[in-house]
C-alpha cells in the first residue's frame, strides 16, 4: 500500500468514525420521538414465517413504545383479505400506514389509493414508488454476498439448483437478479433449468421433494454443487433433502436468518453452507422511527437499510450467536 493510499484509508476511517458518532447523535434524537395521539395502521400479508412475525412485532412494539395506537392487520397470506383490510384501513384514515411484504403487482394499485387518500405510506421490505420510505436490508448487498459465498464454496464451477417462485416479491427479485449478475462473472457456474418453484404454504415439504427429485435425476456426485433460495425456509427443506440423500458435497444457501437455519449453518456437519441473517425486528422498529420522524416534520430518506450479516461455516459460531439471542429475547421460536 502506498503512503497516499494509507492516508486515504485513514481519512476514510476517520470519516466513518465521524459518521458513526453522527449516527449516535441521531440515535439520541430518536429517543425523543413520539407518536402520542397518532394512529398507525400496519398491514402484513402474513406472519407465518420467522422474519414476517419478527418485523410485524417490531413495528407494533415500537408504535406502542412511542405512545401511539396501532391498528395491526395480518392477512393470513390471503391477497383478497389484505386488499379488503387495506380498503377499510384507508376509510379509517390513520395518521400513517406501514405495509409489510406481499405481491407488489396486487398491492401497487392499492398503495396508490393510500397516497391518493393523503395518508403517508411507509413500507417494510417492499420497494414501491408509492412509499415515502422503505425500511429493509440492503438486498443488493445480501444478494451479491450470498451468491459470492456460494461461488467461492463451489470453487467457481458446478451446477446450482435455484428456487425462483417469488420473483414478484420485490426483495426476491433483487436477490435473484444479483445472483444472476454475479454469475455473469463465473460462467462455469450454471443454473439448472427449469428453475424450481418455492411455494407457500408447505414450503419445507415442497422444497424437500423438489430437491430430492433433482438429486435423483442427477445421481453422480458433484453433478449438483449448490441449492439457492431467496429466503431460508426452502433452504431448510433443501438441506434436509441433501442430507437424506447422502449428497454432502451439495451446500445450501438462503437469506433471512431464521434461528433454525442459523443453527444448521453453525453445525459443521450440516449441508447448510451460509445464510444472510437480517434483523427483522430492528427493521420493523426502524420503520416506525421513520414514521415518527416524518410526522414530526423531519426529512426521511426514500429507503433505510438495517445491517445484515453473512453467516457462513467459518464465522457461524461467533456471528450466529447474537441472532439466536435476539430471537430468544423476542420470544419467537
Amino acid at each position: 500500500m502506498t503512503r497516499s493510499m494509507k492516508g486515504l484509508v485513514k481519512a476514510l476511517a476517520l470519516g466513518l468514525a465521524a459518521a458513526c458518532s453522527l449516527a449516535a447523535v441521531s440515535g439520541a434524537t430518536a429517543e425523543e420521538l413520539s407518536l402520542k395521539g397518532k394512529r398507525i395502521g400496519v398491514s402484513a400479508i402474513g406472519t407465518d414465517h420467522y422474519w414476517d412475525l419478527m418485523a410485524f412485532k417490531g413495528i407494533q412494539d415500537r408504535v406502542k413504545e412511542l405512545g401511539g395506537e396501532v391498528i395491526a392487520l395480518d392477512a393470513g397470506r390471503k391477497d383478497q383479505q389484505q386488499i379488503a383490510q387495506l380498503q377499510t384501513l384507508i376509510a379509517q384514515k390513520p395518521d400513517a400506514i406501514i405495509e409489510q411484504l406481499g405481491n407488489l403487482e396486487v398491492l401497487n394499485p392499492w398503495l396508490q389509493k393510500i397516497r391518493d387518500a393523503g395518508i403517508p405510506l411507509f413500507t417494510v421490505d417492499t420497494a414501491t414508488p408509492h412509499a415515502i420510505n422503505n425500511t429493509t436490508s440492503n438486498n443488493y448487498n445480501i444478494g451479491a454476498e450470498i451468491a459470492l459465498q456460494m461461488v467461492a464454496d463451489m470453487g467457481g464451477k458446478g451446477n446450482v439448483l435455484v428456487f425462483n417462485g417469488f420473483y414478484s416479491v420485490p426483495v426476491c427479485k433483487i436477490r435473484y437478479d444479483q445472483l444472476k449478475y454475479v454469475l455473469t462473472s463465473f460462467p462455469n457456474v450454471k443454473i439448472v433449468e427449469p428453475e424450481l418453484r418455492d411455494v407457500i404454504p408447505n414450503t419445507v415439504q415442497s422444497a424437500y421433494s423438489n430437491v430430492t427429485d433433482m438429486l435423483t435425476k442427477s445421481p453422480e456426485k458433484g453433478s449438483i454443487g449448490a441449492v439457492w433460495a431467496c429466503w431460508d425456509v426452502p433452504q431448510i427443506g433443501a438441506t434436509q433433502a441433501v442430507e437424506a440423500a447422502g449428497r454432502n458435497e451439495v451446500k445450501t444457501y438462503g437469506i433471512d436468518g431464521s434461528p433454525e437455519v442459523i443453527k444448521m449453518v453453525m453445525d459443521p456437519k450440516s449441508s447448510a453452507g451460509a445464510v444472510a441473517a437480517q434483523q427483522p425486528y430492528e427493521i420493523g422498529k426502524t420503520s416506525v422511527d421513520n414514521v415518527a420522524k416524518y410526522l414530526a416534520g423531519q426529512k426521511v430518506p426514500p429507503f433505510t437499510f438495517v445491517p445484515a450479516v453473512l453467516i457462513n461455516k467459518e464465522n457461524a459460531a461467533e456471528k450466529g450467536k447474537p441472532f439466536l439471542e435476539a430471537a430468544e429475547k423476542a420470544g419467537v421460536k
Binding site: R77, K78, D79, Q80, N103, E105, V106, P109, V199
Partner: peptide, 13 residues
C-alpha cells in the same frame, strides 16, 4: 380486477 392479477390460494375462499 380486484387483485390486478391471478394469484395462487383461491381455494382458501
Amino acid at each position: 380486477s380486484r387483485l390486478s392479477a391471478s394469484t395462487p390460494g383461491s381455494g382458501e375462499l
